[in-house]
Design a protein around this nucleic acid. Structure first.
Lengths: 334, 334
DNA sequence: TTGTACGCGTTATCAT
DNA sequence: ATGATAACGCGTACAA
């Protein structure tokens, strides 16, 4: 059984108060007693009990992270960013996922409450109203990463998906593509779906290209949905020269479907992805894609949260700049 | 500020003892008082304080997970498996990573100790002796996933890398490949490196093929190391017809390098990966690879740990079966 | 400089 | 069936 400050006090012949002071370097004691206490602590293999500390300090030095059920390197990067700064501040990270379609989200919130987390980060999960209420009832600072809610005052950090999509499609237009398809986005998804579709549409409109809704193939951002989209394009005998995808995985799905049919990318078809996930540089051909700075978003989000926790300030939302990473999946028409 | 059982007791006009009993459904009270207490608890928005509970129960209902710094979907799957079963048992997961080359591992262990985790899972990080001592000093059940240590008694769960590598190379030999290269493995890595190399060598020996050490290109399992290996093969003008890679990423590196030089896979060169990570099905061509059941390993590992925590039993190591997933990156010679 | 004593929120023992 | 009350390990006013 682990030793306590009482044990140290007894062995060292001082009071627990003194032990506590020494252990926390609060000053106000002799060098002698300090040395003695430290020595005994080491000898006894003392290790502070954070739970007991949490009780009296009314702070658990812990933050909660709720992420989606799906496990991609995508979230890995964000979480690493979070954990890195939390660690720096001496905070621990409790992790849980929200279950399929967020089924576990209420319970997750509750759990975080019971653990008395000092702050909460929600990554990429959509918050409906009841979940939002649970979140607020926790009464701790929080920030959403790569999500938003209807509530205007909920602080978030994300890229402007509509503008990012716009950038990508404009890039295609600048290279003289005129018949451009879109794949992989779920229009019902108000966070990552609809905005990207809107950006796509707006870019076309702004450049005098009329929008053909048949060229928009809905999906769920997955590899499979990319494959299916390509299949649909072929069945439609669509005359597209390029496809803008709502995710890298969907883009790989397009490429994979092309590969099966001997359609060459980018010679026969241009493909642009979204995310700049690790695979985008490893694909054949390397994928031109929209980059979200995931690790940085995790870091920035957690920094803001720490700031809010420590200084009792409120968090301001932040739109992070996206970037178009040009590789080799786009053919430059003339 | 959150309400406590004292608040409930006061408002409901009973003692804290009774409140505690009701809240924990321990029985031994009137229906009336039960209803009253429950009503007040709800009205006050009561939420139990797990930290306080941990103190008196000497159990934090928490397990710690230490993983490597690198963030791939690989670990995501394992962690999801862990979290799923932990959640089932009502346990929370505290996550931390071990820093680059495990620089933070000692601190991580210490942190887990201070949080009084009931058990610990180490994922894929190599434990040197001092780290091992820290681990044991925590005096809680633990299990290693996808790692081992020199200590025979340290429970682990992993696939037999040597046999898995053997299987993959034998598959190549069965399809009449005779000059087979190996790429991406770090021979200094006693966990994932050396055994895979040994499996490769053993498979060759068992089939009367002499081993050419020049055909073994060391690496760090990364995409880059795969590319470099391919470059080396070309500079050597090696007459290989196939390459066995120690990771899928390295395999993609090989393929990428081939792509740049118009070498076609698998027509001109056969490639086999290792991990069956998500990318292996998305690559061009889809990758034949060795599968480790990551999610299942996470689940199984956590189940064993839970068992050990709850029943105070010890954990037995387990070797999980690997599997060769055949896709389209292998050419069948005759 | 050091010690006493109380409180944090909860469970558990022992009375009643 | 219910209530006092003592822990659990720690921090901290207040005293000395």
């Amino acid at each position: 059984m682990a030793s306590t400050i009482k044990d140290i006090a007894r062995v060292a012949g001082v009071s627990t108060a003194t032990v506590s002071r020494v252990l926390n370097h609060l000053g106000g004691y002799n060098e002698d007693t300090e040395k003695k206490v430290m020595a005994v602590a080491k000898a006894l293999g003392y290790r502070k009990n954070e739970n007991a500390r949490s009780l009296v300090q009314k702070s658990s030095k812990t933050i909660g992270v709720i992420m989606p059920e799906v496990t991609t390197a995508f979230y890995g990067d964000i979480i690493k960013g979070i954990e890195d700064v939390a660690y720096e501040y001496g905070y621990s990270v409790i992790l849980t996922h929200a279950g399929s379609q967020g089924s576990r989200i209420q319970e997750s919130m509750n759990l975080m409450g019971e653990r008395r987390v000092d702050g909460l980060i929600i990554v990429s999960v959509e918050l409906h109203e009841p979940a939002m209420e649970s979140l607020l009832s926790l009464d701790v600072p929080y920030i959403l990463i790569s999500t938003k809610t209807k509530r205007e005052d909920a602080p978030y950090i994300k890229v402007d998906d509509e503008r990012a999509a716009y950038t990508a499609v404009k890039y295609l237009i600048d290279h003289h593509h005129r018949t451009i398809g879109m794949a992989g986005a779920n229009p019902e998804d108000p966070i990552a779906g609809a905005p990207r579709i809107n950006g796509y549409i707006q870019a076309l409109l702004d450049h005098g290209i009329k929008v053909d809704l048949n060229l928009i193939k809905a999906g769920d951002f997955s590899f499979e949905s990319g494959k299916q989209a390509m299949q649909a394009f072929l069945e439609d005998q669509a005359k597209i020269t390029a496809v803008f995808c709502a995710s890298d995985e969907a883009a790989l799905g397009i490429i994979s479907a092309c590969f099966e049919r001997q359609i060459s990318v980018p010679e026969d078809l241009t493909v642009v992805g979204y995310d700049n996930s690790k695979v985008s540089s490893m694909s054949i051909p390397p994928l031109t894609t929209v980059a979200q700075p995931l690790y940085e978003m995790g870091k920035a989000g957690c920094s803001k949260l720490m700031d809010a926790i420590i200084h009792h300030t409120s968090i301001e939302s932040q739109v992070i700049a996206h970037e178009l990473v040009v590789r080799q999946s786009v053919k430059k028409l003339s």
